[in-house]
C-alpha cells in the first residue's frame, strides 16, 4: 500500500501559477480568478436538535453547525461550516488543517449513543475563487440564483448549478474595495470545464488570474 503520494490539483495542468499576476493593482480588470486547491472538505451528518452532536462539533472545530439554510458559519479563510441540508454540513478547513479537523471530529463524534457520520471528501472537489467588480455578472451568465448582495451576501451559500456544473457556492466577506468574492466548489472532474467556461465568460470584462 502506498502511504504517501503526490497531491495534484485538478487544475494543475492549466499552469495557473505561471499566469498569476503578482501586482496587487487590478484597476481595469473586471474579474480576478484563482484556484485554491487542497482545502479540507469534511462532510458531517447528524441531528442539529441533538445537543450532544452540536457540542461535539463545537468541541472539534470551535463552530456550531448552522441551522439556517444556505448559510456558512465562520470567517472566510478560516475553518468554516457550510449548511448542506437539514442534517448535513461541510466543514471547510485550510489545506494544513484537514487532517487535524478530521481526527478531532472523528474523536468527538465517536460517542456511544450519538448518531452521526464524518466523511473526508477533501479530494472530491477543488475551490475556484472569483472576485472583482464584474464577478457577479460572470456567474449570473450560468447561474439562475439571484446573486445580488442584498440576497446573496457574505456568509450566504448555495448548492446550485453554474453552467451545467453542480457546485457548492459561497460569498465570502466583501473584498477590500467592496466587491463580492465567490468561492465555487465543483467536483474535481468538472473543474477544468468550469474554469475554462468562467474564463471564457470573463473575457469581455478583462480577466486576471490571481
Amino acid at each position: 500500500m502506498v502511504d504517501t503520494y503526490r497531491l495534484r490539483s485538478p487544475l494543475a495542468h492549466l499552469h495557473l501559477d505561471a499566469r498569476a499576476h503578482e501586482e496587487a493593482d487590478i484597476s481595469g480588470t473586471g474579474v480576478v480568478m484563482k484556484e485554491i486547491p487542497y482545502r479540507g472538505l469534511i462532510n458531517i451528518r447528524g441531528d442539529a436538535a441533538d445537543s450532544a452532536f452540536v457540542d461535539a462539533v463545537q468541541k472539534a472545530v470551535k463552530l456550531s453547525p448552522p441551522v439556517d439554510a444556505n448559510t456558512v458559519a465562520g470567517k472566510a479563510n478560516t475553518t468554516r461550516i457550510m449548511w448542506l441540508g437539514p442534517d448535513e454540513w461541510l466543514v471547510i478547513t485550510s489545506p494544513q488543517g484537514a487532517d487535524r479537523a478530521m481526527k478531532a471530529l472523528w474523536k468527538n463524534l465517536k460517542t456511544d449513543g450519538l448518531h452521526a457520520a464524518v466523511t473526508d471528501s477533501t479530494q472530491a472537489r477543488t475551490c475556484i475563487e472569483i472576485s472583482g467588480p464584474r464577478a457577479r455578472e460572470v456567474l449570473q451568465k450560468g447561474c439562475s440564483l439571484d446573486l445580488h448582495p442584498s440576497v446573496f451576501g457574505p456568509g450566504q451559500s448555495a448548492q446550485t448549478i453554474v453552467s451545467k456544473v453542480a457546485v457548492m457556492m459561497t460569498q465570502t466577506a466583501a473584498a477590500r474595495n467592496g466587491d463580492p468574492t465567490y468561492e465555487l466548489y465543483p467536483l474535481r472532474s468538472f473543474a477544468t470545464y468550469l474554469w475554462t467556461w468562467l474564463e471564457d465568460a470573463s473575457q469581455e470584462y478583462g480577466l486576471k488570474v490571481g
Binding site: 439554510a69 444556505n70 441540508g85 437539514p86 439562475s144 440564483l145 448548492q159 446550485t160 448549478i161
Partner: peptide, 9 residues
C-alpha cells in the same frame, strides 16, 4: 429546505 429554485435542479 433550500427555498425557491429552478426546476432543472
Amino acid at each position: 429546505f433550500c427555498g425557491e429554485r429552478e426546476e432543472k435542479e
